[in-house]
Design a protein around this nucleic acid. Structure first.
Lengths: 119, 119
DNA sequence: TTTGCATACCTAATATTCTTATGTATATTT
DNA sequence: AAATATACATAAGAATATTAGGTATGCAAA
């Protein structure tokens, strides 16, 4: 399947961990494939996470103690659910705050905020 | 000089061209070192562009026809001014729009917008 | 005057992070 | 039966940045 991301995918770089951690924060637990589909749906296919990026990231977050896993059998197939550890919960918040701050900084830097109020 | 970027610099990845093009759009023409200092000042040192990232990017943008250069002598030292070509001007707009759109998408995805109005 | 810091350009080795391609296997739909 | 979707995974390569280093001028303080 050929994937044509809407964004000149450079922008996505560096945001993947933030996305994963915060999706898990909102949804309790999710498995990898589910994450790719949820992001695709929520963004109207504007953001498409590739599996080649996602799985290594999930493994890294797990080995860093941000995520924990439970495996479940759906028929004969293993499904690997990820959820946040306590460390992961605070990291999720930090990353979200950092991203929000970064976006504000970028808006200012690029004059993306038309002046409001009495200017 | 040791550089300690405020942001876990991952986020910066992919935004450098956008920053450079739009700074030049707002300022007419700038030279490399000036760009690093301007970004540092405008962002309260939150974003610090390293020269190892900037110069190759400037050269790439020039070879792609987005930027043109004029060299000027300041004393014995050459200073290389960059400015946008016409192509660069439209690219600057596109990149800024794309980034703005991306940021909106991310805000929605991460629930960074508290619902306003009659919710 | 020489030592250090700021200005101003640059490249190269390395690291990080992603894309693309590929592999395996089960489940469902046509 | 074949195609598509689900679901995991890894590996080669590309893109982009960091870190470290190099060259040289200008200026201020010791």
């Amino acid at each position: 399947m050929y994937i044509c991301p809407m964004y000149s995918s450079e922008l996505l770089k560096g945001t993947l961990k933030t996305i994963v951690l915060n999706l898990l924060k909102d949804n309790g637990r999710m498995y990898g494939y589910e994450i790719t589909q949820r992001v695709k749906d929520l963004t109207g296919e504007k953001i498409q996470i590739t599996e080649g990026a996602l799985y290594p990231t999930l493994h890294a977050l797990e080995s860093q103690g941000e995520l924990k896993t439970e495996e479940e059998f759906i028929g004969k197939r293993v499904r690997k659910y990820y959820s946040l550890t306590e460390k992961g919960q605070s990291t999720a918040r930090e990353k979200a705050n950092e991203l929000a701050d970064f976006m504000n900084t970028m808006k200012f830097l690029l004059n993306l905020e038309p002046r409001t109020g009495n200017g």
